[in-house]
Structure formats: C-alpha cells, structure tokens
Design a protein around this nucleic acid. Structure first.
Length: 199
DNA sequence: AACCTACACAACCGCAAAGCT
DNA sequence: AAGCTTTGCGGTTGTGTAGGT
C-alpha cells in the first residue's frame, strides 16, 4: 500500500535467499570480528541485509557447529518428548539438541511429525482440535500417539516406536541423505573458502 | 511431455523481553 | 523511571522440487 518514506540514506535492503557471496562475507566478517551487534555488523560487513536477517542466517546455517538434515530417530523422540512437555517452545527444545536450530526443529515438527500424528489420530478417531495445552499449543494433538508415552520412563523400544515411529525407520520420514544439506553449496565449502580468503 | 499437487525448507514478519542510555 | 535499541522467539509465507496424473 503506502510506501515508507525512503530517504537518500535509506540503503536498499536485500531480501530473499542468500547468495554465496553474502554468506562468504558474513562468515568472513564474523570470523575476523566476532558477532557483535547485528545491525552494525550488517553495515560494517557491507551487507545490504538487516541485522535480523544476518543473525538468522548465521544462527541457522552458517555457524560452524550447526548440524542440518538427518534428524535421527533419537532426536525425533527427544523432540516429541520435549514438545509434549513444553509445547511450541522451539528454542527451548533446540537447546537440548546440540547443533539443531529452533527453526529446523519447528519445520521438522510441522512438516513431518505433525502430519504423522494427524494420520495416527485418524486411526484412533481422536479429534483434539479444541484442546490446547498450557502453552497454548495443541500438544494434546499428539495424544493418539503419545498415550503410551511417559517421558520419565521413556525407553526407545516402547510402543512409541511401534506407532508413530515406525515412521522414523520408514524412508518417507527420513530425509534423503543429501537433500537437506545442499544449499547450492555446502557449508563446509563456504568455510573452506573462508579459510582460504580469511586472514 | 506437460501440468498439477504436496512436501520440505529457507526466510520474513510481528511482537515481546532484555539491555542500555 | 522512561524511552529507545537490539535480540530472541514463534508464526507464517514464499519458493523450489519431487512425485503423481
């Protein structure tokens, strides 16, 4: 609708997918200067991105310790357990999964687990649409799957696996080996380039 | 071969909390 | 104490791709 006032100092802000060059700039800059304040970092690094965007990109993809793809059955069970406990507290859940980001867990939950739970509910005839847990999320939607599930007494071999998590071993729930690691180029590539370029 | 649909993931947006001046 | 800035979080949307018709 209305355009926001655009002064001459208002540098245009890039949106959308990050390019390899931008990634390299960001990696390089952080490797040399550390993280600091994101807004100033974005400017100082010469990126036409918001600080927010830089932060997200760094935290979710460029950090050297970030792991992507291939969520293991153990991790999935942990996600289930923690989600049952805390609801959609993705960042809190992510803290218990080293190398995983809240965004990845959130996406994983929405696209895979939630879908599978819906199917499971279909079988049990449950409709928990109106139920929300204390966190305002519908964690009870997992009731069909989770009824046999007791976090404190969790064992990897219990019924949980028999129900929802036959799916885990089922190839259609596991990401294809390389699919989610490709992002036009691998992070390893970027980091090795950074090492070549950097100090 | 072309089109359609569903899925998976990356990125953005808005809001609230925390920190700083 | 108040106002401003920055960060962090959760929800949502956009886009590319694979599979099906």
């Amino acid at each position: 609708m209305e355009k926001k006032p655009c002064t001459s100092q208002d540098v245009e802000v890039r949106k959308g997918p990050w390019t390899m060059e931008e990634d390299l700039i960001l990696i390089n800059y952080i490797a040399n200067h550390g993280e600091g304040v994101w807004n100033s970092l974005a400017k100082a690094a010469g990126l036409k991105r918001t600080g927010k965007s830089c932060r997200l990109r760094w935290l979710n993809y460029l950090r050297p310790d970030v792991r992507r793809g291939n969520i293991t059955p153990e991790e999935q069970l942990l996600i289930m357990e923690l989600h049952a406990k805390w609801g959609n507290r993705w960042s809190k859940i992510a803290k218990h999964l080293p190398g995983r980001t809240d965004n990845e867990i959130k996406n994983y939950w929405r696209t895979r687990i939630q879908k599978h739970i819906k199917q499971a509910e279909g079988f049990t005839g449950q409709s928990s649409s109106s139920e929300m847990n204390e966190h305002g999320s519908s964690s009870s939607h997992i009731s069909g799957v989770m009824e046999n599930y007791s976090p404190s007494s969790y064992q990897p071999t219990n019924n949980l696996q028999d129900h929802a998590f036959t799916a885990v071993t089922n190839s259609n729930l596991l990401p294809p080996p390389d699919q989610s690691t490709e992002n036009y180029w691998s992070i390893e590539d970027l980091w090795s380039m950074q090492l070549l370029n950097g100090d």
